[in-house]
Design a protein around this nucleic acid. Structure first.
Lengths: 206, 206, 206, 206
DNA sequence: CATGAATGAGACTTCATTCAT
DNA sequence: AATGAATGAAGTCTCATTCAT
């Protein structure tokens, strides 16, 4: 992350890599993996096609690199929220809100994220997308742990914590999806309290 | 739907069409739109490539025909459940259960359904997939109407009914997705009561 | 070989295949495997590139099909000469002459043949060219058998028959090569008696 | 050849050049001209690609430089043998033996040598390979002169000396090729007397 | 309607070569 | 000289679609 102390050459290389990934993100997100050509990405990034291939072995690797970097950021943030000390209800509310912040200025990533984790992904050959899915599964497990803690403390009802996590993910993603489809009408951020309300009321112990 | 009174020629034609769609469904569901070729579909359906094109203008139209037929069935069933007379809570429970029955023996369709409605779909050029999305939106609206009725009858809390519908869809789809990913571990059908419980507790008036 | 009784469609297909192989032979022979593009071959054969790929899985397979068909013809002819009844010296003279006839009107094949069997071949990936080399080895073995017969009949000196075969191949190929390089100055056909003379005198029993 | 009296800079330059040629020889010989990239050569030689291009104008020139140096060595040695004083038969036997020594520890060169002189070479564009071929032709001519001398001295039969040379080259190369293909089974060196025997018996005057 | 050979645009990828540092 | 990032022409191959039979 810290490029500061690197030699100029290395810094430039990283910058170029970022430019390529940015171009790829924009295009993949708008048109989908199979409707974007490597030439298109190279052109958008203002590099020659050969340069693109110097940085990424092939289209799949470029795509995967893109997804993994974004997924890592995403999961790092949410995982951080879930790791906080404090009462479970606050953590859950924060988690719901945090999802808003993450994608607030990066709709492109959100779109791809859905394509990979919710839609049945057919973009990359079997095996390559396993890593991304695995990262996502880990987050759900962590969420389940948090919920389990809530159960033990009698804050939450004694339901299967994994399925509670699945439900929470389902709701939040549904709202994110709404927002993605029509950002004008459906603000996820504004709806975060509604989500918290509905979900928590459904799972809280009385 | 009723082919009985049609001349033999017409009946055969419909049968052929069904065979082609069945082959397409199987392949699209397994490998994704872009990883299936028209030749592959023709071969699987045991027709010549030219015949496939006699029935469907092009690959997109074939895909859309497939999706629309499946979506129509799906929404017809769920719409039927929501149109029933009776108390709202029962209707909602039935709705949740009904989703299990629909896909129980048709995982292939479920997979494609997600690719289109939950993941950001990049399969078919803008405009063509609007019809499918529209059908889905109608169902959500109908669900919202049902929920609104529940609110008016003081059975449900006074929350935005559209967002309640979004939440319910989010939860049920999340569970369907779980089941799709690992049918052995996560039975949607068995979990339907859990879903109903969590969701209804969250939205019911006290 | 007999296309006569085949349906028209099938006959045409074979003709097209032959046209493609002919175009490939001409180009490969003139410019070498790596200096000929599939587009070039398609164009020369007056077919679209896609059609070429309908007939041959890829460039290597096209090349191999070409080589194998030619090699089969070639070895069939020479093998026939070696299988004849009669005295060994006559058979050997005929063998030497026969090599002239084979390539007389097909310099292109001869050139490729050398590239594969005499030059160290780097054209096709390891394994694919084994078949061609094997065919050639079989011929040398058969030649050795013939020579062995001559030894047993005391017509030839008691030398290692395999190495005698190698020597004979070496001489004949060297003359073929001369002719290939400069057909005007060095006629293989005219030199066949010279070859026979030199070689036989070297290996004949007194 | 003598680098001793040169300034250090010059000596280093020559050493670098040799390293590059050695890397190229190894790779070309193993994989063939078209299956080796300039990057690969640079990497093997442990230089940057740009440095490679400082020494050799382009891939063809690199290849040609390699071939010419090896060919020059080769022909210098054999030419030396043919220039010796003494009786023709001894010279010829020595010539046949000498071919063994030359390639004994340099199979790589032998492989390339065949690719260029025996197989129809398609490696380098027309014109560039003429020099190598010319060098080879000169050697054959010199061999023919030697043979002619033998004829004049009534040691050899009165055959066309050029064709006798061609035949000798054919035989020796065939044995070299045998050895190249399977060094374990076919030792050229051990077979040198066999070659001499067969060839000389075929061409000697009685 | 059925067939399937033919088409060719366009995708992915490699690699010889250049040039600023 | 040495470096190696950047270039882009050119090659291989796929596949949606057409059309003559």
């Amino acid at each position: 992350m810290q490029d500061e102390k690197l030699p100029r050459r290395e810094r430039e290389k990283r910058r170029h890599r970022r430019q390529m990934l940015a171009a790829a993100l924009e295009l993949f997100s708008k048109k989908g993996y199979h409707n974007v050509s490597m030439h298109e990405i190279a052109e958008r990034a203002e590099f020659a096609i050969g340069t693109l291939y110097k940085f990424f072995k092939n289209k799949e690797h470029l795509y995967k690199a893109l997804m993994m970097e974004k997924a890592a950021e995403y999961h790092h943030t949410l995982s951080g929220v879930l790791s906080r000390e404090g009462d479970v209800l606050t953590i859950l509310k924060d988690y719901i809100s945090a999802k808003a912040g993450i994608f607030a200025d990066d709709v492109a990533t959100l779109r791809l994220y859905f394509a990979e984790t919710r839609g049945a992904s057919f973009n990359i050959k079997a095996g390559l997308d396993q890593d991304i899915r695995k990262l996502y599964d880990e987050l759900v497990e962590q969420l389940a742990s948090t919920l389990e803690k809530g159960i033990r403390k009698n804050v939450l009802r004694d339901l299967n914590p994994y399925y509670m996590a699945v439900a929470l993910e389902g709701i939040t993603n549904a709202f994110l999806f709404c927002w993605l489809e029509d950002p004008e009408r459906h603000s996820y951020k504004a709806n975060a309290p509604v989500i918290s309300d509905m979900f928590l009321k459904g799972v809280m112990a009385e």
